[in-house]
Design a protein around this nucleic acid. Structure first.
Lengths: 224, 224
DNA sequence: GCGTTCGGATATGCATACACTGACGTACGC
DNA sequence: GCGTACGTCAGTGTATGCATATCCGAACGC
């Protein structure tokens, strides 16, 4: 028998469920939701809902407007630029540090595996699988950077743009260049070439950011 | 008469007061504090205290441990390294972008003023005033970078190390090189020389970080 | 003497109750 | 007809009560 898992606190459940609802678009960007309404919807009282709301607000996913309810923050092109700028700096820094450090043998293989998964997904034209593997790659890369703060910040910002990807993933060109970049970064890390790892990843993110911004502005999306 | 300000929500007061107590060291690093105790101390019920606690936890200032109370997180040398790495990357990025953008006339003068304040404080050997002006300089610099996310992240991390400065400020050498760096960054921004602004500020932060780490490890401080 | 189990004390997590504030609509005055 | 003032109502912010889970100590067994 699995030792029955202790029931997670309701506030935690609330935060998890709300996050999922936001990512899935069930709580649309820009929409308002009263605490009472959410409490009923999740089958709990307002107290844990409020606690979760405060956390999500601290992570920049929602905004708490007294009497208006909790508003799911839309991401404007300007927000997108900001987020990608920070991602670019922190991730390329992590790539550089990853190259400077030594790693347990298996770890780099995981990165390799994520890249292979992306390749395979591209062959099948399975964009969702590609996106998942891409997430994994970037998450592993941050882990290799050996800076938990940077990791946490990047995770938070990645969450903020996650919703946007649902929109852009299907209208963007197939991300083939992306994967060449990933391999080049991995190679540089293997060789311990910090400067190259940093530079390539920086360019990679800058390009991706510009492409997304372009996509969004072409689509006349004022907010996502 | 000033239109009487509406009374701020208790939860906000709680967060502000707790932050101050932490910075002032009245809630010592590593110490535990029960919600009930804090509620009594701040003259309010547990509800707003909890809300504030969740916020502070999200900012990485405290940790919520069921039944142990809220624990003021100590900063280890390792934490310090992490934080300075992120500060280095985000601030130097901001310095670079600040040089690329154009600014309203008065704005750069504020930066200049902060630097002068630091000079004056150094002449008086007034380290507290120097630290305040240094804060102002770095805050303004981030503002000039034009990235509110980066600004928020940096502010959060600066808060995390604020306590440490109380310890290091008095044992470190007089920060004279610091000010030369600041002027050089400002000059580069004025000239629109992004590359130089970025590079100098990066070196500035790297040096400061190494110095602090050195100071802390010399003092055998395992945590602050 | 040491380990284990049981019981009590206690802090928390959550639900609920309530007062207050801000918003909106209506009605009145001009 | 337009602007203003008042009343009503809803939602939040906060307090409080309670059930539960956990931790510590003591007592018992080995």
């Amino acid at each position: 028998m699995a030792p029955d898992a202790p029931r997670p606190p309701r506030s935690r459940t609330a935060a998890d469920v709300l996050r999922r609802l936001i990512f899935d678009g069930e709580l649309a960007p820009g929409s308002d939701h009263l605490e009472t309404e959410l409490a009923t919807r999740l089958g709990m009282s307002r107290t844990p809902i409020r606690e979760a709301a405060v956390q999500l607000a601290a992570q920049g996913l929602v905004e708490l407007r007294p009497r208006k309810g909790l508003r799911v923050l839309p991401i404007s092109p300007e927000d997108m630029r900001e987020i990608y700028e920070v991602l670019t700096e922190l991730e390329s820094g992590a790539a550089g540090r990853a190259a400077e450090r030594s790693h347990a043998p298996g770890v780099l293989d995981e990165l390799e595996a994520a890249i292979s998964d992306m390749d395979a997904a591209l062959d099948r034209d399975d964009r969702d699988a590609w996106a998942d593997a891409d997430d994994t790659f970037h998450r592993l890369l941050m882990r290799l950077g050996g800076n938990t703060r940077a990791e946490a910040v990047v995770a938070m910002l990645a969450d903020q743009v996650r919703r946007a990807r649902a929109v852009t993933l299907w209208s963007r060109p197939l991300p083939v260049q992306s994967n060449a970049d990933h391999r080049a970064v991995l190679d540089a890390i293997r060789r311990g070439d910090a400067e190259t790892a940093r530079a390539i990843h920086r360019t990679h993110r800058e390009t991706a950011g510009r492409m997304l911004l372009d996509l969004i502005s072409r689509a006349r999306l004022k907010a996502i």
